Amino acid sequence: MTSCVVQRPGGVCIAVTDLGGDGPVVVLLHGLAGSSRELLRTARALQDHRVLLVDQRGHGASTRLPDDLSRGAFVGDVVAAIEELAPGSRATLVGQSMGAHTAFLAAAARPDLVEGLVMLEGHVSGSDDPREAAGLGAYFASWPVPFRDEAAAREFLGDDAIVDAWVADLQSTDDGLVPRFDAAVMQRTIEAVHEPRWDEWEALQVPTLAIFAKHGMFSDADKDELIRRRPETVRVDLSGGSHDAHLDAFDEWIDVLRGWLSRDQASDSRTIVR
């Protein structure tokens, strides 16, 4: 396992963990306010692949306060990571939530670099309600940081699946534990994600798998619209799990992911509802 830094315009540094190996390249992209750490278990389950775990800008060990939080900037970071760390390769992009949105846009922009796309609890329709992004920003700003210790963090954050990942990501300072992300950056990031991107979705050229959790954040109408607008997309509905199904429905998630990665590329796309 090797830690790498990809330099980007504006002095932005993108942290990438390269698990090595000689197999097909897979790039894993975490969700909003997360980091690549939460996908390590997924990465280690893909033994026959070379896995790159990316801390997206504003997250994890990457630059915390980048000026450019456009979707294009996030896409450019993924493209740069592939071109610099796996030159001459085409990668499969695997993303959860906001990371799925980044992966989808990267696949749409650079099909020459992407041979497959997996979206876990991701969508492209966006939201026309600005209160959603503002609410997320307010929530992250409400964290009473620094936390005295992990126990104090857990007491405030609760017991949702993502909390273990948030706690593991807390950075130790002289005053206590603080998150590795900035609340205002999270709000600006998700505001850009909420802009609908149907044109890119309908023009997408690469094989795509959309996975939804039983207790995820998207309605049946949301899921159906995604497939209606791009029928060649393979859809899998998990029998359990939350929006963070890579954490609380891991066995089913990894079974579906590994099965799709090892699929016959010439096979017909289909919808699978479990």
Results as ranks from 00 to 15, higher is better:
residue 4 C to H: 12
residue 12 V to L: 09
residue 16 V to M: 01
residue 20 G to W: 11
residue 22 D to W: 07
residue 27 V to S: 04
residue 33 A to W: 02
residue 37 R to H: 09
residue 54 V to T: 02
residue 60 G to C: 08
residue 67 D to E: 14
residue 72 G to R: 11
residue 73 A to P: 09
residue 79 V to E: 15
residue 89 S to H: 12
residue 93 L to T: 11
residue 94 V to G: 03
residue 95 G to V: 15
residue 103 A to M: 09
residue 107 A to S: 11
residue 112 D to Y: 07
residue 116 G to W: 00
residue 121 E to D: 06
residue 126 G to I: 14
residue 130 P to R: 00
residue 133 A to V: 07
residue 134 A to V: 08
residue 135 G to D: 05
residue 142 S to Q: 06
residue 147 F to Q: 00
residue 147 F to C: 03
residue 148 R to I: 14
residue 151 A to W: 00
residue 152 A to Y: 04
residue 156 F to C: 02
residue 161 A to E: 03
residue 164 D to V: 02
residue 167 V to F: 00
residue 167 V to M: 00
residue 168 A to T: 01
residue 184 A to C: 03
residue 189 T to D: 07
residue 209 L to Q: 00
residue 210 A to M: 10
residue 213 A to G: 05
residue 218 F to I: 12
residue 222 D to T: 08
residue 226 L to F: 10
residue 229 R to P: 10
residue 229 R to D: 12
residue 233 T to L: 08
residue 238 L to D: 05
residue 240 G to L: 04
residue 241 G to P: 15
residue 242 S to I: 13
residue 248 D to H: 08
residue 251 D to C: 04
residue 254 I to T: 15
residue 257 L to R: 01
residue 258 R to S: 15
residue 261 L to S: 00
residue 262 S to R: 07
residue 262 S to K: 04
residue 267 S to R: 13
residue 268 D to H: 03
residue 269 S to E: 10
